[in-house]
Design a protein around this nucleic acid. Structure first.
Length: 418
DNA sequence: TCTGGGGTCCTAGGACCC
DNA sequence: TCTGGGGTCCTAGGACCC
């Protein structure tokens, strides 16, 4: 097998922000933040004009506004992003059927079988960029190399709006001077740990003893990162597969955890999680909640049930007990800022299966009759929602905190296939 | 008027079983 | 009298990615 640069990584630049500039020409060449505001909330994406001022996705809006006084905050057209990204993927599909889409706005392409039709990987990368710009109107960066990992680093280096090809035999020359933070799996914490050992570049990491790297970063990630730095790509095709968990969370501002608030938020979250599970014919045995306190400290509690669950009420009840367990030892004046509910340990659940395998001694046993009634109720509410929309029916005041939160369109965009 | 929402994977300790 | 070794599952926390 020749190791030519036959893997491409194509990555739309500042995707959400670029779409906003495409839809609204007056935003072009201006610093744009999607989401948040100068007074609060969080920036979901920033245009390159904003990034040069240090604005980043995930940054609180007030901080972004301080870094970049001219920043324009827009709400975002979340209903448009999916369709535009799909059109880009269709363009990519014209060059090879061997595509692995890894998120809404990026994909790997294996073009080893396409060179007869379209020329070298470098020229394919150039044509992709031209066509996406001409036909969709968005900037896209492309990296080409002999492995996925290298192609992904190359596209990062190519940004914004560029093309970088790593020629075979010149991998070390390309990698050595780059900062370790460009590697997949190296975030701020790992970067700092390596810097403390004097390791800042991928070349320096490749020269460090493997045992030292593993001791520093843990056995698994240490070994993987060291191998990647040596350009010995151990990653098999990332078998995306089905989701392993389904969750939902909601930021609350600073709130006293009253029983009413906790119950209302959890039933809302449980409803979102459980209805997604039911829609896909799945259920899960492990329920995990997360409580975040003022000051960003957070605590998780989980419980594994004897049988899989996908009913809203049962999930709500289990989650509620877990949340109080998590809050239990806190000061009585404690404030919470976020609640999250997730279900994992997923199994398939045929349309007729109920929550029956629960053991009598299980404290959260819904009881078989109760369980089947709940499940039937959920299914009929699912049907109503399918016909009349998400908010047509619901448990309790599921409408709490609608005002401050993130749009539902964004939540749907972030959901993955269950 | 201090920080979103969706996920994945790894580690470590303890329980439990054979 | 003393106390193996491997495997699996569960729980809690944390880093990271898009």
């Amino acid at each position: 097998m020749t190791a030519g640069p036959s893997i491409l990584h194509a990555d739309l630049d500042a995707f959400y922000a670029s779409v906003e500039q495409l839809l609204e020409p007056t935003l072009r060449r201006r610093p744009v933040a999607v989401g948040g505001s100068a007074r609060g909330g969080v920036v979901l994406a920033a245009s390159y004009e904003a990034k040069v001022h240090g604005v980043r996705g995930g940054m609180p809006g007030w901080q972004a506004a301080r870094l970049c006084p001219d920043l324009v905050f827009v709400r975002g057209h979340f209903d448009r992003y999916r369709g535009l990204a799909d059109r880009v993927m269709t363009v990519l599909g014209d060059f090879t059927p061997a595509i692995q889409r890894i998120s809404i706005d990026e994909a790997f392409l294996d073009v080893s079988g396409s060179v007869h039709l379209f020329g070298t990987p470098a020229s394919i990368g150039a044509r992709i960029r031209e066509r996406v710009r001409a036909e969709v109107g968005l900037p896209i960066s492309v990296g080409a190399a002999s492995t996925k990992h290298l192609a992904k680093i190359a596209s990062q280096v190519a940004k914004p709006d560029g093309l970088v090809v790593v020629q075979p035999g010149r991998e070390r020359e390309f990698l050595d001077p780059l900062p370790v933070g460009l590697m997949w799996g190296v975030g701020p914490v790992t970067e700092q740990r390596l810097a403390d050992r004097g390791i800042r570049t991928i070349g320096e990491l490749s020269e460090a003893p493997g045992t030292m790297v593993e001791r520093l970063l843990g056995r698994a990630s240490g070994a993987t990162l060291h191998a990647l730095a040596l350009n010995d790509d151990p990653r098999k095709v990332a078998g995306s597969g089905r989701a392993r968990s389904v969750g939902a969370q909601s930021a609350l501002g600073r709130r006293r955890p009253t029983p009413e608030l906790v119950r209302a938020v959890l039933s809302h979250l449980a409803e979102r999680v459980a209805s997604r599970l039911r829609a896909k014919g799945r259920a899960g045995r492990t329920v995990t909640v997360r409580v975040r306190f003022a000051g960003m400290r957070s605590v998780t509690r989980s419980h594994t049930l004897p049988g899989p669950v996908s009913t809203t009420l049962t999930l709500t009840e289990v989650a509620e007990r877990l949340v109080w367990h998590a809050i239990g030892k806190e000061d009585s004046s404690v404030e919470i800022t976020l609640l999250a509910v997730a279900v994992s340990n997923l199994t398939w659940q045929q349309a007729v299966q109920l929550e029956l395998p629960l053991q009598p001694e299980d404290p959260w046993r819904p009881g078989s009759a109760t369980g089947s009634a709940r499940w039937a109720l959920d299914r009929s509410m699912d049907a109503v929602r399918t016909r009349y929309g998400r908010d047509a029916v619901g448990y309790l005041p599921a409408t709490i905190g609608r005002s401050g939160g993130v749009p539902d369109d964004f939540r749907e965009l972030a959901e993955r296939d269950v």
